[in-house]
Design a protein around this nucleic acid. Structure first.
Lengths: 360, 360
DNA sequence: ATGTACCTTGGGAGCGCTCCCAGTTGTGAT
DNA sequence: ATCACAACTGGGAGCGCTCCCAAGGTACAT
């Protein structure tokens, strides 16, 4: 309220200089106090803090950014071909996690939707003009030029999900294979004999991982992998429907199906109903994503849950760790930039959790 | 690529000064060219533009912000009690619209989730430290102190939706009453005799507007309003369910219901099914929001669509118009800050659209 | 020629902060 | 007392840009 009384409400905001004058110290000292440097005596610190409180001083971020070359903000970039993705809980989970983690570091989140090439260029420019300290890239296609563009401008970036097994950029991903293993293992444990899978499009790395997990689980249980039991879907309901019909026609002994997404499982469920097969009586069903439809299906669908909020948080952690790793030109790059064991690695694989419901 | 050859990839970025030197002009001239000032001769402009291209010059926003006192960024603020809201298409619509409109003005969007008081203070500080030129406030509760806090710091803000009929801040809202009128009018036109409504909580202004629309439509059709036909829900499925049961018990002649939200309509539909009433045969149903559930209900639900993307866009337009309106201290505030007829007003009511499906 | 008016242009003066160096003060050992 | 050393502190020198003013040009009228 003192601040208001001082007429700051609409008018000029106090500067470091003014705080320094009021506290009877130098500019440098105030800066140190504001930034929590330990090289300030207790007495002086209090003096300065009082002055700050009295004036209602708030640092000017633009000035800080200019002087220090850092902005305390990161961009979350969403290529917006997929409006779909955008309205999904997945997106809001990432957003929530990232936002929470950033808040803890007193940093801000910039949201950038990229609808077309023009907007991509605009963002690249933006990034290059150092308005952000780093970027979180979400829902990226394998052929998106954005990562390279950012690298070219020296902007640290973290991917959500890998583009391939040889992902060269820092990333945070779900352990899709492990999730699939858990799902299939669960079906086998339930005594199912013929377990098939409906996969995603093979050009998507995430789909391959889940298919691999399926295979691994079978092998781990001492069974052979029958490749004809892998039927390709495309992550749509319609695709799941088609795939399941094919499976039903080809495999009379079928009694369990692992679907690489809940949406495909919904399609599969429909095909089963049409064929008069009961779930889980005749055929057990497991999905992936633990999305809203999983809970609302009839029967409710067993599914593999990804720690989405946590992915958002972790992306931020990785991004921030990148900053420390990066050898600042001013410092002679201590030793050999070896990843220290304690800190978060530049890539993280997060665990999944099988949510068992009555479809299996 | 010249830029890359010049070693800008990781290193120092070129400055205005360097561009000026290369072009053989002064700093001011380059600034004028970059900002599209007309006070530059054609010849000079070309010279400068060549130099900019050659060096791959990109203005440093922080410096610009510091010198000019403007950031070219606005914040979208979401109080996050309502994770619900967050995952909804409504949110992504606003986001998409705002983002698109901002992109056209070469501005950026800052996303701020406010989970608790600490984060609110943090944002207030942030806003006060002039990191953004304005704020878009979304899903605000009537008692939220944020608007006042922002006003205190002199930060322009636009609300999404009004808090009351006497909203004092600039806002963009849907014409809820008109939407309700259309819905109820449609039911009356369909020959329904006893039209009831399930309302939202009366402490929410939006709920009152929709209820008012219901009354107006009846009166417009020359009917009397029977207040016992307004049953209060709470915008949840469960609430819709309860309300419909009450209606069924109390009004044997009931043959149409306007629900103030799709979610409540879903609950109502459930109650109707339990009661063995057919839709639209026995009872016609209309919702509000045209959300995903409307399309997926059985039968698909007639609903009132709001132009959500457009609301996002419009919020930005209003915010930007605020900037021009605001008398800058340097200028003697031309005449008397009268809203000029042509420009967008500081408050906008957007039209709705009735999407007729088979539930009515 | 001379004057007037209008363009265009260069560059000084900051914007508010961080970085860093040199100066000051304080402490403990000698 | 004296010295070495550490802990604090003040303030100059920018960071890269915009704003603005005065200077220099140009064109046209007198």
């Amino acid at each position: 309220m003192t601040a208001v009384r001082n007429g700051l409400a609409g008018g000029r905001r106090p500067t470091l200089e003014q705080v320094a004058r009021l506290a009877g110290v130098g500019r440098g000292t105030v800066s140190r106090v504001v930034n929590g440097s330990p090289r300030v005596s207790e007495r002086t610190r209090e003096l300065v803090e009082d002055a700050i409180a009295e004036l209602g001083y708030i640092p000017n971020r633009a000035a800080r950014a200019l002087a220090a070359g850092t902005t305390d903000a990161v961009a979350l970039v969403v290529p917006e071909q997929e409006t779909r993705f955008f309205a999904e809980p997945y997106f809001s989970g990432i957003l929530r996690g990232a936002s929470a983690e950033l808040a803890e570091h007193d940093m801000q989140l910039f949201l950038t939707l990229i609808r077309n090439e023009r907007e991509r260029d605009r963002f690249t420019q933006y990034a290059a003009s150092h308005r952000v300290d780093g970027a979180l890239l979400v829902s990226l296609h394998a052929d998106d030029p954005l990562p390279d563009l950012l690298a070219e401008h020296g902007l640290p970036a973290v991917l959500n999900g890998r583009r391939s097994s040889a992902e060269s950029m820092p990333y945070v991903d779900t352990d899709n294979a492990a999730g699939a293993r858990a799902a299939v293992g669960h079906l086998l444990d339930g005594g199912r004999s013929t377990v098939a899978t409906i996969t995603g499009p093979p050009d998507m790395y995430v789909a391959r991982c889940r298919a691999d997990g399926y295979r691994e689980a079978l092998r781990a249980a001492g069974r052979e992998v029958d490749e004809s039991l892998l039927v390709q879907g495309d992550f749509t309901e319609e695709g799941g429907h088609r795939a399941m019909r094919r499976l039903l026609a080809a495999e009379p002994s079928l009694d369990a199906v692992f679907c690489a997404s809940d949406v495909m499982a919904a399609g599969a469920r429909l095909a089963l109903r049409e064929a008069g097969r009961s779930v889980p009586g005749d055929i057990a069903l497991v999905g992936f994503d633990d999305s809203a439809i999983a809970r609302h299906m009839d029967p409710p669908l067993t599914s593999v849950r990804q720690p989405i909020d946590e992915m958002g948080r972790e992306m931020v952690r990785v991004l921030l760790s990148l900053r420390e790793r990066e050898p600042t030109e001013t410092r002679p790059a201590r030793a050999a930039v070896q990843p220290e064991p304690g800190e978060p690695q530049p890539a993280r694989l997060l665990p999944t959790e099988l949510v068992v419901r009555s479809s299996s």
